[in-house]
């Protein structure tokens, strides 16, 4: 079962063209000659750096969820909101669908993504496949499009501007933590899962 020879091949996900893989130098991007989709990018980040980034993201994620995002003031009354406060209010206001969507895309999916990546990288660093490697990698693949922290940051900005028309607005630490989180997520969102598959040899299943 020629796994070694087939790892030398690459199929464009967008048009089915077959390529022989070439090692990429720093900054190189392999592009499909047929449909111009990106085939593969060079990754300068080592496993250790990736792991450090994931752990940083976890710490920032805790901050982002702990602190209120924005506080409004009206005649001396103050009202702040955290992510979970927002989710709970939406649930109570007959918008359970929105509450579930927000809880998934802004809390559970990003959290799961970070934990899975952290776990896999921790073992990858030791040159081993983590327990549960295969199902975790498959889960990561399906999670990929469903994390929306960056949309939430833009949403918070719009909400601040809208609220500013009627209230005093104070941006709280939560929003800065979210902005930082967005940056971190963008850095490791580009991780090609293929590299993790190839990083460690296939052990006993």
């Amino acid at each position: 079962m020629g796994t070694t020879s087939s790892e030398a091949l690459l199929i464009c996900e967008h048009c089915d063209t077959v390529y022989r893989r070439r090692p990429l130098a720093r900054g190189d991007v392999a592009q499909c000659a047929c449909c111009h989709a990106v085939l593969e990018r060079h990754h300068g980040l080592s496993v250790n750096v990736m792991l450090a980034l994931v752990m940083t993201a976890m710490i920032v994620f805790v901050q982002a969820n702990m602190w209120p995002i924005v506080t409004l003031g009206l005649n001396g009354q103050l009202s702040g909101a955290t992510l979970w406060g927002t989710i709970i209010v939406m649930w109570q206001q007959q918008a359970q669908v929105v509450a579930v969507l927000a809880a998934g895309t802004l809390f559970f999916f990003p959290l799961l993504k970070m934990f899975l990546l952290g776990w896999l990288l921790w073992f990858g660093r030791l040159g081993r496949r983590a327990p549960g490697f295969v199902p975790m990698m498959v889960t990561l693949h399906y999670l990929q499009p469903w994390t929306m922290s960056e949309v939430f940051v833009l949403g918070a900005l719009v909400a601040i501007v809208k609220a500013h028309l009627y209230f005093d607005v104070v941006a709280d630490p939560g929003i800065y933590a979210y902005a930082a989180l967005t940056l971190l997520i963008t850095i490791f969102a580009g991780v090609d899962l293929r590299q993790l598959w190839e990083l460690t040899p296939e052990g006993p299943a």
């Binding site: 009202s79 918008a95 719009v158």
Partner: peptide
């Protein structure tokens, strides 16, 4: 671009949570 449309949903959610006077 698909998921950026969720913007307005998050705006409504945040305003609902914030404006409780």
């Amino acid at each position: 671009i698909g998921y950026w449309s969720m913007l307005d949903v998050f705006v409504v959610a945040l305003l609902t949570a914030l404006v409780r006077f």
